[in-house]
Design a protein around this nucleic acid. Sequence first.
DNA 1: CATGAATGAGTTTTCATTCAT
DNA 2: CATGAATGAAAACTCATTCAT
Lengths: 195, 195, 195, 195
Amino acid sequence: MGPKSAERGREVRERLLVAAVELIAERGWGGVSTRTVAERAGVGAGLVHYHFGSVQELLSAAAVAAMREVGGSLESLLEQVEDPADALRLMVSSLDDYTGDDAVSMVFTEAYLAATRDAQLRDQVAEVMAEFRARLAGWLGARGVAEPEATAAVVGASIDGLVMQRALDPALTSEVVLPVLVRMVQTPGGARWRS
Amino acid sequence: MGPKSAERGREVRERLLVAAVELIAERGWGGVSTRTVAERAGVGAGLVHYHFGSVQELLSAAAVAAMREVGGSLESLLEQVEDPADALRLMVSSLDDYTGDDAVSMVFTEAYLAATRDAQLRDQVAEVMAEFRARLAGWLGARGVAEPEATAAVVGASIDGLVMQRALDPALTSEVVLPVLVRMVQTPGGARWRS
Amino acid sequence: MGPKSAERGREVRERLLVAAVELIAERGWGGVSTRTVAERAGVGAGLVHYHFGSVQELLSAAAVAAMREVGGSLESLLEQVEDPADALRLMVSSLDDYTGDDAVSMVFTEAYLAATRDAQLRDQVAEVMAEFRARLAGWLGARGVAEPEATAAVVGASIDGLVMQRALDPALTSEVVLPVLVRMVQTPGGARWRS
Amino acid sequence: MGPKSAERGREVRERLLVAAVELIAERGWGGVSTRTVAERAGVGAGLVHYHFGSVQELLSAAAVAAMREVGGSLESLLEQVEDPADALRLMVSSLDDYTGDDAVSMVFTEAYLAATRDAQLRDQVAEVMAEFRARLAGWLGARGVAEPEATAAVVGASIDGLVMQRALDPALTSEVVLPVLVRMVQTPGGARWRS
DNA sequence: CATGAATGAGTTTTCATTCAT
DNA sequence: CATGAATGAAAACTCATTCAT
C-alpha cells in the first residue's frame, strides 16, 4: 500500500479520537455508541472497530490522550508563574470557562469512573495522574510549600472535585473558590514565601 | 387487598432502592438495567416501572436518598466535635474505609455526572449539596473560619475529588491528605480559633 | 401472571426448537441466525434470547431434544423385531427416506461437530449416545452377538457415517449397504442366532 | 517482476491452504474468516481474495487437497499389507492418534457437511470418495471379500463415523473397535481367505 | 400489586469483499 | 503481487417499556 493509504488511516484515527472526547463530555462515557462517534467523526461505523478494536478502547485512548495533553499544558503553565497562588489561579480558571464546550474537564471525571471498571484504563489514568502530581509537587517544594507531595495530590483532587461540582452549581466560580484553595499552599505560620 | 398489599409495595420500593445504590456503585449509572436491578432486589422486572415509572427515575431516587442520608449523618457528626480539624478527620475517614463496598461514596460521583444530563436530578442533587454546604458553613463560621461559605464549598468538593481519586490510588489515605486539608480551615494568621 | 402467559411462553419455546432443528439441517449449525430462526418460528427476534439466552443454547437444546427423540424411537423399534439383521434394516431405512426433509439425520452430524467446540453440548450429546449404545448393546447381547458393547458402538458410528455420506452419494442406499452391515452382527462362526 | 513474484505467489497460496485446513479443524468450516486465515498464514487479508476469489473457495480447495492427500496415503498403505484386517488396523489407527492436532480427520466431516450446501464442492468431494472406494474395493475384491464395492463404501463410512464420534468419546479406541470392523471384511462362513 | 412474556429499537461487533496505492 | 484501509450489511445480544393475566 502506498503512503496515502496510511495517511488516511492516521487521519481517521485522529478524527475518531477527537469525536470521542467531545461525546464523552456531552453524553457521558456510557452514552457514546459506535454509531454516534462514527457519525460525529464523519467516518463509516465499521472503522471504529477496524482501528481501535472496540468502543471501549477508543474511549480509553481518547480520554488518556486528552488527559496527557492537559498534563502537558500544566508544565508550560507552571513555567509562567512564580507564586503558587498564581498557579492555582490559572489552574482553576477552567471553572469559569466551562460552558459545556470545555470537553476536557468533564472527561477527567468520566475517565476516573470508567477506570474504576477497567484495569487497563486504570493503569494509564494512574500514570497520567502520578506524572501530574510529581511535577506539581516538585514545583511546590521548590517554593517552600510544606509537604509538597500531599499538597499536590489534594490540590489536584480538589480541582477535579470543583470542576465536577461546578457543572451543577454556576455559583462555584474561581473567584469564590480561589481564596480557600490558596490556603493549602500557604505555610501554617503565614505567607512566608510571599515576603 | 388491604394493608398487606400496601405494605408489600413499600418493601419492594425499598428493596429496589437499595439494589439500585449497590449497582450504581458496582457498574456505574449506565450499567444498571431493569433486569439487573430487579434481579438484585429479587422482584419481577415489571415492578421497576410500576413503582418508579422508569429506570432513570429509580436511579435518581436511589441516589438522592443515599446522598440525603450522608448529609444527615453529617449533622450528627458535627455535633460530636468542636475542632474543625477533627471534623475533617471524621469526614475523610471514608477514604480509608473504601474497599469497593462503600457504595455510597461512588454514588456521589455517579450522581454528579448523571445530574449533568438530567435537569430534574440536577435540581435534587443541587438541593442536597446546598443543604450540606449551608450546614457546614454555619458550623465553620461559628468557629471563626474565614469565608465559611466558600470554605464549605471547597471542602466538600475536595472530599468528593479525593474519594473519586482514592478509588484509583490506594496511597491517598486520610493520614496523608488530612494535614493539607486542615490548612483550608485555618485562618491565614494562624490557628486563632485554637487558642 | 396468569396461566395463559406461561402457556404462550411454552408454545414459543416449542416453535423455536422446531424451527431450529429444521434450519440446522437446511443451513448447517453455523448458518442459523437469530433472525432466521425467529422468522421461521414466526416469533419476534428478541424472544430467542429471552427464552434461550443465546442462539447457541437454542441450537444445543434443539439438537439434543431431537437426538433424544430418535433415541427413544429406537427402543420401540427394537421391541418390534427379533433378528439383529431386521433391526439394522429398520435403522438404516432412514438412508432411503432422506430427501432433505429428514432433518433429524443431518442434525446428528451437525451436533457432533458443534459438540467438539462446546463443552456443555459435548456432555449432553455424549449422554444421549451412551444411552443409545447401552440399549442397543443389551439387545444385541441378549441375542448372542459377540462383544455387544463394541458392536453397538461401531454400528451406531457406521450408520452416522452412512447418513452423512448418503447426502453426497445417492447410490448409497440401504439395499446396497445392509448386507455388509449385517456382517457386524453375525458371530464369526456363522449365523448362530438364525437357526 | 519475474519468477520471484510467481514463486512468492505460489508460496502464499500454499501457506493459505495449510492455514485453512488447520482452522477448519479448530473452528469449524463456518468459523474461518478472511482475517483469521490470513493472519494464521502470515499474509495480508486482501490476498485471500486475490488468490482464491472467496473464502469459500479457499476452504474448498484446502479441504479437497487434504482429502486427496489422505486418499493418496491409502494407496501406499494398501501396498504394505496383505490381510484386510491389517489394512483396517492401519486405517483406524488415526482414532488413537487423535488428540485435536489431527486436523485432517475433522476436515473430512466438515467437508461432507459443507459439500451438502455447495454443489461445486460436492462434486469434488464425491470424486475423491469415489476414487478411494474404487481403490479399496479393488484391493478387497482381489482378496476374496464378498461384495467389495459395498464393503468398501461401508468401511469408509464407518471409519468416518468413528473418527467423528471418537472426538466426543475417548473410549472409542481402535483396539475396541477393530474386532467388530474386521467382521465386515470376513466372508460369512469364516475367515476363509486367511487360510 | 405483581408477574413475566413480548416487542422493537438499539447496542457492539464481525465479516466478506473492494480498491487505491 | 501485496497491502491494509474502507465499506456496508449482517450478526448476536441487550434493553426499556408495555401489557395481558
